[in-house]
Amino acid sequence: MFRFDSGLKVFLHREPVDFRMGINGLSILVEQAMLLNPFDHSLYVFGNRRCDRIKILGWDGAGFWLFLKRLEAEDRFVWPDTTDIVTLTVD
């Protein structure tokens, strides 16, 4: 299980991803596009093109978790404009 404390790292993949992609495809993106280790105790956030869904990938030491959040109606997630990998905090 994840501990949402100040030590948890959260990384945002800025480019939209195909939401048919599952755990294997997203973990490859973490490794190859973000140049990070999908097996460390961090969370990786991915969004779709319309910015109305996110997937969060995380490793808990025994297996991967894949969370999905879908916004309804006209709500959208606000995505940063920077080209760098964005690191978020849980504070």
Rank of each mutant, 00 (worst) to 15 (best):
T87S: 14
G22D: 06
A33P: 11
K69Y: 02
G63T: 03
T83C: 06
F39D: 01
N24H: 12
V86R: 00
H13V: 05
L29R: 10
E74V: 12
A62T: 13
F46K: 14
A33R: 10
V78Y: 01
G58T: 02
S27L: 05
L66I: 15
R14E: 00
L35D: 11
I85V: 15
R50H: 11
T83G: 04
M1V: 09
Q32T: 14
L26D: 02
L43V: 13
I28G: 08
V45E: 01
S6F: 07
F46C: 11
G63M: 05
L26K: 04
E15G: 04
F4D: 15
L35T: 06
K69M: 10
D60L: 09
E31L: 02
M34L: 11
G25N: 12
A73G: 12
T82M: 09
H13A: 15
E74D: 15
D60I: 06
I23T: 12
G22T: 06
I85R: 07
D40K: 15
L68K: 12
D5V: 03
A33D: 15
F19Q: 07
D60T: 04
F67G: 13
W79N: 03
S27T: 11
P80H: 07
R3G: 03
D84G: 14
K9P: 05
R14V: 05
I28R: 12
W65V: 00
L66F: 09
W65H: 13
N24W: 07
I85A: 01
G61Q: 11
I54M: 11
I54D: 08
V90S: 11
K55T: 06
R20P: 13
G61K: 12
M21C: 10
F4C: 10
G63F: 03
V78N: 02
L36C: 08
F11L: 07
P38G: 07
R14T: 14
T89L: 07
G63Q: 01
K69S: 13
Y44T: 05
D75C: 00
D60K: 05
H13E: 06
E15C: 05
L36D: 04
F11M: 08
N24V: 14
L66V: 13
G47P: 02
M21V: 05
